[in-house]
Every structure is written in structure tokens, then in C-alpha cells.
């Protein structure tokens, strides 16, 4: 009996009309497209985008060249060289991140004892020359300076969960 019913159903394209009805309904539904450059979707304060190096309020760079981030980095994209300054503190002379290798996991930020290396909310950036993908200490500090307000606010918002 069910075989006959199935035969009749398939002969009269029953399921196909059901499908057409469904897509027909969606034709008139509200569209959910986000028109990107003009509109954006909400972003988490934990967003992991382009990296930055932060400074203390007095202008001194935070990074102490402990190389924990270099050690923890699963993609091995961080290269650090350091030296001793005349005042006895240890600072980096080189802090390079290869953005082609980086997988944006955020381990560097988690491992950092002085909150120096952070990942910002910036996700739309590009390179124009070969080699630009390796981002140097100067650039990282510059990004940190420019976005310090937002970086600090995001960290403060998340502080109780850390």
C-alpha cells in the first residue's frame, strides 16, 4: 500500500512541490545580509586580531624579553633578541612576528607576565610588499600606542575572568 502511495507521490512530484513551497516562503523572508563596509557585526572584547606591544603609563615599554611568548607560540612565528640596558634592565632589541605563520591563537597574550604583547580587535589589514608580513617591534609599539585606550578598556572588561 505504501509502495503505491509512494509511487503516486513521486509521479505527481509531491515532495518537489513541498520544496518549492519552502523556498518560495524564503523568497519573501527578511534578508539577513550585513553590508560589510557600512555595517559590521558586533565584536567581542576578546577578539584576537592584529598584535600590539603595550607601554606603561610612564612611556616605558612593558616587554622584558622573557621569551615566554616565543616559547609558547605553536606556529613559531615570534623572534626575539634582547640586551641589557645601562640601567640594568633587560629589553628586546628585536621583536618580530611573522603574520603569515601566526594562527592568532592568543597564547602569547596569555603567557605574557607583564601584559606586553596583546592581540587587538584590528582584523582588516593588508601588506603591499613582500616582507611586510613580518611585523617589527617599532610597528607593534606604534599599534599599541595608537589603540592603547581600547586595548586597556578590553582588558579591564575581561579582568575578573583572568
Amino acid at each position: 500500500m505504501s509502495a503505491i502511495r509512494n509511487y503516486i507521490k513521486s509521479l505527481f512530484l509531491w515532495e518537489l512541490f513541498g520544496g518549492l513551497r519552502l523556498t518560495g516562503k524564503y523568497l519573501f523572508s527578511k534578508k539577513i545580509t550585513v553590508q560589510y563596509p557600512e555595517e559590521t557585526t558586533p565584536q567581542s572584547n576578546r577578539f584576537r586580531g592584529l598584535h600590539a606591544l603595550r607601554r606603561y603609563p610612564n612611556g616605558e615599554e612593558r616587554c622584558i624579553a622573557c621569551k615566554l611568548c616565543e616559547a609558547v607560540c605553536p606556529a613559531a612565528c615570534i623572534t626575539i633578541e634582547s640586551e641589557q640596558r645601562t640601567d640594568g634592565t633587560r629589553r628586546t632589541t628585536r621583536y618580530d612576528i611573522d603574520l603569515f605563520k601566526c594562527i592568532y591563537c592568543g597564547f602569547c597574550e596569555e603567557s605574557c607576565p607583564v601584559d606586553a604583547i596583546v592581540e587587538t580587535r584590528i582584523f582588516d589589514y593588508h601588506f603591499e610588499k613582500r616582507g611586510d608580513n613580518i611585523i617589527t617591534k617599532d610597528k607593534l609599539l606604534e599599534i599599541g600606542d595608537r589603540y592603547e585606550k581600547q586595548i586597556a578598556a578590553d582588558r579591564a572588561q575581561d579582568a575578573s575572568y583572568r
Partner: peptide, 10 residues
């Protein structure tokens, strides 16, 4: 356009 609309795009 029509296929976009059916797929809830614009």
C-alpha cells in the same frame, strides 16, 4: 538576485 533572495541574502 532571486536566488540570493531565496537564500536570505540580497
Amino acid at each position: 538576485k532571486i536566488i540570493g533572495y531565496i537564500q536570505v541574502r540580497i
